[in-house]
Design a protein around this nucleic acid. Structure first.
Lengths: 142, 142
DNA sequence: TTATTTTCTAGAATCGTTCTAAGCTATTGA
DNA sequence: TCAATAGCTTAGAACGATTCTAGAAAATAA
């Protein structure tokens, strides 16, 4: 059985981020954070909400995703023009991107080290280093 | 004075790529490849063409950019949702991306090595590894 | 409760990009 | 040279993802 306060930690996370724990944000947070690491687009999450009988407008999904991202609860990943993915894993890590299926996967953090980082342009400092390993299915796939 | 055959090498490049050297494609290739390494969006290139008194439709700019990319003359770089950059440098290299000005810069190839590449998901093989170092201007900038 | 502020919503608007159908243009081969 | 033909360009419509708008609803504060 689940705890009798299944939302309490999510409510805390939202409050700490300065966001009111509204019905919509709770529902989205639940979908996002209670299933392990996920990589979702806004449309996709909106679809999941509908499937879970949570009526919510697409605009609200976009708002929530950006607010969660600003609060550090999500991370936005850009791998394709015209579509944003939101990653529930905010630890330092990188991605595989399957060009044929448009699927994103985390690369475990221990792997992949980026060395010999050059100095950033004068007057700037690094905010993040993104590595995307693009892959495609092998030819003779069944 | 310029050579008396200023287009000949560009014409060859287009022909080798199976593209007719039309007026529009020549003009775009000239803008793209005769100014060192560049990172341009379609809109930006269209603007440059207009500024150079080359009348060309935006659709043609998009077509040409994609054809050049398919031919290996350009490389597409995705760093921001909703906008594609095309890079005239097709050698293996990576990028700085200035989040505040939306500017893209090459990182010289000798720098930055990615080590300990994990094996790609079963049934797939790597097509490319993209590294983007995101930077922002320092606070007290004048 | 009531007042205040924030949030949500549907739908319109916007953005970059792609599509369409028609008219041009480069190339080919008589 | 001259059509014939295949490929290219075009303006404008269409598109998909995202953002905006203005008013209604809900959360918090007093």
């Amino acid at each position: 059985m689940a705890s009798d306060r299944p939302y309490s930690s999510i409510i805390e996370r939202l409050k700490n981020a300065g966001l009111r724990p509204t019905r919509q944000r709770l529902a989205l947070a639940k979908l996002l954070f209670e299933k392990g690491n996920r990589h979702l687009t806004a449309e996709h999450l909106h679809g999941e909400a509908s499937a879970a009988n949570v009526r919510i407008s697409l605009a609200t999904v976009y708002n929530a995703l950006h607010q969660f991202t600003a609060a550090g609860l999500l991370r936005e990943v850009v791998v394709e023009p015209g579509r944003s993915y939101f990653d529930t894993n905010v630890e330092e890590h990188h991605h595989f991107y399957r060009e044929d299926t448009c699927g994103l996967e985390d690369i475990p953090g221990e792997h992949l080290q980026v060395g010999d980082l050059p100095a950033p342009p004068a007057g700037t400092s690094v905010t993040r280093v993104d590595v995307v390993i693009r892959v495609k299915s092998d030819q003779g796939s069944t």
